[in-house]
Design a protein around this nucleic acid. Structure first.
Lengths: 212, 212
DNA sequence: CCGTAATTAAAGTATTTGTTTGAATAATTG
DNA sequence: CAATTATTCAAACAAATACTTTAATTACGG
């Protein structure tokens, strides 16, 4: 094999895999699946596309091996194929957050419109008994992995379950990642009800991959 | 801003940046620039494309902020724009090496045809005085950063400079990364001349990014 | 003003991409 | 086995891009 052929083959192969990452809908699906397996319809609902379209995108992701699937009855459950797939998504995400002004601006503006709740990074949160980590993702995602000592209340149930939460602690809510709005909604609701609440910048997955 | 608008904007923004990564030629340019700044003509020669074509790809990379440039006289020197750009490339590269059989097979086959020199990972190299790390990249890339205690002999000069190398040590050659052939060529040459020689799997950049 | 380095506009060619529609498949249930 | 549910798939459509080359142009230095 010639040196040039070798390089052409290698870089073409990687570029082929990279193409699976370069569609907005597919990125949203990857971001979603990182938090736990989902059926096609769940994916379609969450990303606001049709089931058929979601299925098409999932075939692309499956062909490039970024996701895998298993059948259970009439359902097919999709999930990310390994931690490296999440690592690549995270690298691209963080790169865009660093270098792409449009992405930065959109995030800043949205947070501001949500009332700019204020946020903490995990690495410098006050490590005492005055705080409570609240996981506001669906319970199955919590079950698939969560922060140590976090409590689980899905954002949809939060308004009816406020009595479960302590009023003498600062509640630090987290969800799927920087583009998930659940934590913002939770903090907004908690503050409206007199709680001390903040958003955690990192998701469980971000922390897991950093501190491996 | 509606939740859906927010997500659409965010994922579109990231996908836009990701598209810069999804061309074989651009990936090769990124891989090259990671090791140090280069002029347009150097890039064109190394990647075996025309200067005009290289320039076109560089504009794409510059627009998406993956590379930056500075002028020096009539030359324009391009380089990667920050360590996160390299981190994203590395993540995509490692993902393909893990999941894409075509990439794995091409690499395996090429190494085999080069005489399958044998290789070591940095993390389990014998840490004693019986080894010598040899950086076979161009001197300017060595100057931009290299392994501690590594010696620099560009692969093109190696055959004339064999007398500089000790015969009582195992020589561990490294270059730009897994798809760079310089180290393979160096090991081949060294072995043909009776030296003990191995290829280091990691590049300087891989080790630099891992260990902090 | 000439030479070198690089960019750019334009043109051409080819390919691809995302989505929808409607039919088909696959497993479960009654 | 028929009906139901979840999903896939083939086909088609409509845009949109992507890559490369050519030739003219800009930018700088001497």
């Amino acid at each position: 094999m010639k040196k040039r052929t070798f390089k052409d083959n290698i870089y073409s192969g990687i570029a082929g895999m990279t193409k699976a990452f370069s569609s907005p809908n597919r990125l949203e699906i990857i971001d979603l699946l990182a938090n736990g397996e989902k059926t096609v319809e769940q994916i379609a609902v969450q990303t606001a596309i049709t089931v058929a379209n979601a299925s098409q995108h999932l075939q692309v992701l499956k062909t490039s091996r970024l996701v895998k699937s298993r059948r259970e009855g009439t359902f097919i459950w999709y999930s990310l194929n390994g931690v490296n797939a999440f690592a690549a998504w995270k690298a691209l995400r963080d790169l865009a957050l660093e270098l792409e002004p449009a992405v930065q601006a959109t995030l800043r503006q949205f947070r501001q419109e949500m009332g700019s709740p204020g946020s903490v990074h995990y690495n410098n949160h006050p490590a005492n008994e005055q705080i409570l980590f609240l996981d506001v993702r669906p319970t199955d995602e919590f079950a698939a992995g969560h922060l140590p000592d976090a409590r689980s209340i899905p954002v949809g149930e939060l308004s009816e379950r406020l009595t479960e939460l302590p009023r003498d602690k600062t509640i630090i809510a987290y969800c799927r990642g920087p583009f998930c709005t659940y934590a913002d909604e939770a903090v907004q609701l908690l503050r409206a009800n007199g709680f001390q609440a903040l958003r955690l910048e990192e998701s469980y997955l971000d922390l897991k991959i950093d501190h491996n």
